[in-house]
């Protein structure tokens, strides 16, 4: 429900409010929440409700892009690595170990600054730090699945490796990966807003939640509403997503039912 509300907020919010998320309005600086501005205004007189509604797109969108890229890479790399085995598999797994030896956000920070700050490089950086956990998950399942009789049958029928992996093996890994995805989406929102907060993600005046909180720091002691609402938005969104993820996991895994 909460997730649906945030998506609705992101889709309908921009339509519902009469204000512009970027345009500066100097005679309405830092107004507290009131009837005209539900969440108040920022230092440039912009309506925070409007900015947050527009920001939902950036925050949800970049989280989806991060996890989308990471799972795509995880499926392909983990799938083929597990299926083909041998030296390649060994090398890929050692690479995963290495990347996972770094704290995720710290590695992403290093990659993002090397690529140059911006929403796109923060997405790429987080995905680059994130894919190994998916590759490992997928590979582990592929190792078991590739011994299955139907895979052997496909191989005996002369199907090429690419077809076996993509058509016969990977689809079976989707349920497990998707329950992981719903958990990670929330973390991705926190992580990408974190990169924006330290100045490596979305740049002003883009109404991204993390960068809004970063700018609010200067005014937070006097204008409490400025940083409060974007943070609440992150909280509500991530909470909603992880509750959905929990429910999904319970539904997909019979062993967890009633536990």
């Amino acid at each position: 429900m909460a997730t649906l509300a945030v998506v609705l907020f992101g889709v309908l919010g921009p339509v519902l409010t009469p204000y512009d998320p970027i345009k500066v309005n100097m005679d309405r600086q830092l107004l507290p929440p009131g009837r005209a501005h539900w969440f108040g205004t920022d230092e440039a007189g912009r309506d925070l409700f409007t900015r947050m509604a527009h920001g939902a797109r950036f925050s949800l969108g970049s989280a989806a892009a991060i996890i989308g890229l990471a799972t795509a890479a995880g499926f392909l790399i983990g799938g083929f690595s597990g299926y083909l085995g041998g030296r390649l598999d060994e090398a890929v797994m050692r690479l995963c170990d290495l990347i996972m030896a770094f704290p995720l956000l710290i590695l992403a920070m290093a990659i993002a600054i090397a690529l140059g700050p911006g929403l796109r490089s923060s997405v790429v950086a987080l995905a680059a730090a994130w894919w190994p956990s998916y590759a490992r998950l997928v590979r582990g399942m592929v190792l078991i699945l590739k011994e299955a009789l139907y895979v052997e049958a496909a191989r005996a029928a002369g199907a090429p490796a690419a077809r076996i992996v993509l058509r016969h093996i990977l689809p079976h890994t989707i349920p497990a990966v998707s329950s992981r995805v719903t958990m990670d989406l929330g973390f991705a929102i926190v992580a990408s807003s974190g990169l924006s907060f330290i100045g490596l993600g979305a740049q002003q005046p883009t109404p991204e939640w993390g960068s809004m909180i970063a700018t609010s720091r200067t005014f937070f002691m006097t204008a409490w509403w400025y940083g409060l609402f974007p943070g609440l938005a992150i909280f509500a969104t991530v909470l909603g997503i992880s509750l959905v993820g929990d429910a999904l996991q319970d539904a997909l895994d019979p062993r967890r039912r009633g536990a």
Partner: peptide
């Protein structure tokens, strides 16, 4: 557990500062 991991640490830090300092 669910709530704690949903809070962005930098936002929590600002809130703490607002409440316990300011």
């Amino acid at each position: 557990a669910v709530g704690g991991s949903a809070v962005a640490p930098f936002w929590l830090a600002l809130l703490l500062q607002l409440v316990f300092y300011r």
